[in-house]
Simulated assay, not measured.
Amino acid sequence: MIEVRNLWKEYNGRDRVTALKGINLKINSGEFVVILGPSGSGKTTLLNCLSGVDRPTKGTVIIDGTDLYALSEEERTGFRAKNMGFVFQFFNLVPVLTALENVELPLLILGVNRREAKERAFDMLRRVGLAHKWNRFPEELSGGEKQRVAIARALVHNPKVVWADEPTGALDSETGGMIIDLLMEMKKNSTLVIVTHDERIAEKADRVIKIRDGQIVQDIYETAL
């Protein structure tokens, strides 16, 4: 599903910073992979380069047979919209849209008619336990509720890959546990790649990749757990 070859990322400011140093990686379809590492290790940069959010300095990223950075910007945006879902640490919900409207967005972008999009979005909100708050705006929701809306939005179009960046980082332990249960639901239909500090998520993963100073230092299969 995902193949990475010799991936480098450099930032040229006052001082040159090399965030990724020759990453090579393969992730199989249906795997639940956690990327662990201390702050500044390069794990979020890696996630952004894998998902097409941030272009690497050099290297190749192939998703389901498609060379992501051989595509034009427009083609890459379309590919991401169709094949990927995103869960961000701070939710990234559109503040002027209701919970239902936020979840509808990926479907509308893909050209699904509004009636079907609304039905599918409502069903997804029901699956994450928020059907009763379909007409609430983000400012009217708790942190855990916002994250559940974000998860519903990430899953509503049945993406091949779901990326999540610190999905429990802004949540209390009880709500974080609920989000972990929802993440486990994701792996039934999608390949799941999560950047986190949360060891509870790592314990649930099929595979844990540890990164330090822009390099993979350990790659552990955790299927026994």
Rank of each mutant, 00 (worst) to 15 (best):
L47E: 02
L47G: 03
N48I: 02
N48G: 02
L50P: 10
V53W: 13
D54V: 00
R55A: 07
T57C: 04
K58F: 10
G59L: 05
G59H: 10
I62R: 03
I62M: 06
I63M: 03
D64G: 09
D64V: 09
D64T: 05
G65M: 01
G65Y: 03
D67H: 09
L68H: 02
S72T: 14
R76G: 07
R76F: 09
T77G: 11
G78S: 11
R80N: 10
A81T: 03
A81D: 10
K82R: 14
N83D: 10
M84Y: 13
M84K: 08
F90D: 15
F90P: 08
F90S: 15
F91T: 06
F91W: 07
F91G: 05
N92W: 12
L93F: 01
V94P: 01
P95V: 05
P95G: 04
V96E: 09
T98V: 07
L100N: 11
E101S: 08
E101R: 07
N102V: 03
L108S: 05
I109S: 07
I109H: 04
L110V: 11
N113F: 03
R114Q: 14
R115Q: 14
E116S: 14
E116C: 11
E116L: 13
K118L: 12
K118S: 13
K118M: 12
L125K: 08
L125R: 07
L125G: 10
V128D: 04
V128R: 00
G129C: 03
L130E: 08
A131Y: 15
A131G: 11
H132V: 07
K133Y: 12
K133D: 12
L141Y: 11
L141W: 09
S142Q: 11
G143I: 00
G143P: 01
G144L: 02
E145P: 05
K146T: 02
K146W: 01
R148E: 00
V149S: 01
R153N: 01
A154K: 06
A154F: 07
L155N: 06
L155W: 09
V156R: 02
N158A: 15
K160M: 12
V161G: 13
V162I: 15
V162K: 13
V162H: 15
D165M: 10
